[in-house]
Design a protein around this nucleic acid. Sequence first.
DNA 1: ACCTGAACACCGTTCAAGT
DNA 2: ACCTGAACACCGTTCAAGT
Lengths: 205, 205
Amino acid sequence: MTGTLTPMHTRHRRYHHGDLRAALLSRAEETLREKGPAALSLRELARDLGVSHAAPSRHFKDKQALLDAMALTGFERLTGVLAASQDGAGETFSKRVDAMVRAYVGFARDNAELLDLMYSIKHDPGASDALLEATQHWSDLVVRLIGEGQARGDVREGPMERVGLPVFATLHGYADLAVTGMLPPEADEHGLDDVIAFILRGCAP
Amino acid sequence: MTGTLTPMHTRHRRYHHGDLRAALLSRAEETLREKGPAALSLRELARDLGVSHAAPSRHFKDKQALLDAMALTGFERLTGVLAASQDGAGETFSKRVDAMVRAYVGFARDNAELLDLMYSIKHDPGASDALLEATQHWSDLVVRLIGEGQARGDVREGPMERVGLPVFATLHGYADLAVTGMLPPEADEHGLDDVIAFILRGCAP
DNA sequence: ACCTGAACACCGTTCAAGT
DNA sequence: ACCTGAACACCGTTCAAGT
C-alpha cells in the first residue's frame, strides 16, 4: 500500500521492470567498465537489479552465456563504428586508413575492458556462431579497405589476406597497447600519426 | 611404519618436499597451460600438492600475488629468449628483426595462456616494481635493435621511441592474433614472412 | 619457520515450488 | 512464462593453534 496511483510501479518487486535480459546486459557492462571483469558476479547483478539470484538463469543459462552476449554486442558496436568511419572519410586511401585506425583506437580507449572481454571470448574454442560471424564482418571491413587501395594503385599487389594481415596486426597491436596502458607517455603526442604512416609505408607498392 | 629406509620420505605428509613456493608456481603454470586461467584455484593447487588449503598463504599473501609471480617469471623467460635470439642472428638489420620476431611469436605460441596472463597483469594499476622493470628490459631490446638499424642506415631517422613504437605494435599484434587463434589458416604459410617484410618497409628510410 | 583446521563470507548452478 | 528460496559444492581469506 504505497498510496501511489501508478499501477505499473506498485513497488520495486514485480516480475521486474520489463526486460530483465537487457537490464542484466547493461548493468553488467557498467560494472565491467567501473570495477573490472573480476567484479562481475551473477549474484551481485541480481542484487543490483532487485531480483533473486536465480532469476538471471532464465535469460542466460550460464555466466559464460552472459559474457558471450556482452561480447557480441561489443562486436556489433565496433563494426558499426568502423563502418561509419568509412562513410565520411574522403577519397584517398590514406584518409580512409586514417579514419579507420582512429575509429578503432577510439573504440578501444572508450571500451577497454569490453574489448579485452571480446578478445578473450573470441579466444576460447566454444565461441558461438553469431560471435564468429560478427568478427568476420569486421575483418571484412579491413579487407575491403585494402582492396580499394589496390584498385587505386596505393597498395602493393598480392592476395588481400596476405597484404591485409600485417595491417590488421599493427592496428590491433597498437589498440591493445593503448588499452592495456603500455604506451609510453610520449605516444599520446605522435603515436597515432606514426602508426598510420608506418602502415601506409608498409602497404605501398 | 612404512618399512622404507629412506628417512626423507617417510610419507607424503611432512612439511612438504622442500620448496612449496616453487612447487606452487610450477604446478600453477601447468594447470594454466592445460586448463586455462579460470581453472586456477589456490585450494586445488594445495590439494594437488598435498598441503592444506591455507598453506599457500605463507608464500603468497593473495591469489593475485601468485599471479604476479607467475607473470614475472614469464617476463624473465621472454626477455631471455629475445636476448638469445639476437646473439646468433648475424649482422644485417633484417636478419636481426627476423630473429626477434620469430623468437617472440614462438614464445607466444608456446606460452599462450601465460602471455595472456602477463599482459592482463601488466594492465592493472597495482603492478609490482619488479614486474614493471621486467617489461622495461624487454622493450629495451626492441629499442636497441632499432638504434642499431639507424646507425647502419637501415632505419629512418627520428627518436627511437617514435620509430620503435609501430614496430612494437605490429610485433605484439601479430603475436596476439597468433595466441588468440585469430589468424586465418593461410597465415601459417606466409604470415610471419609478410609481417617481417611489412616491418622492414615501415622502418626503411 | 611452516603448516593445519575451523570458520566466514562469498560464488555459480540446480530444482522444486510459487504466481 | 517468469521468478523465488533453499540447497549443494565450490571459492578466497583469516586466525588461533599445533610441530
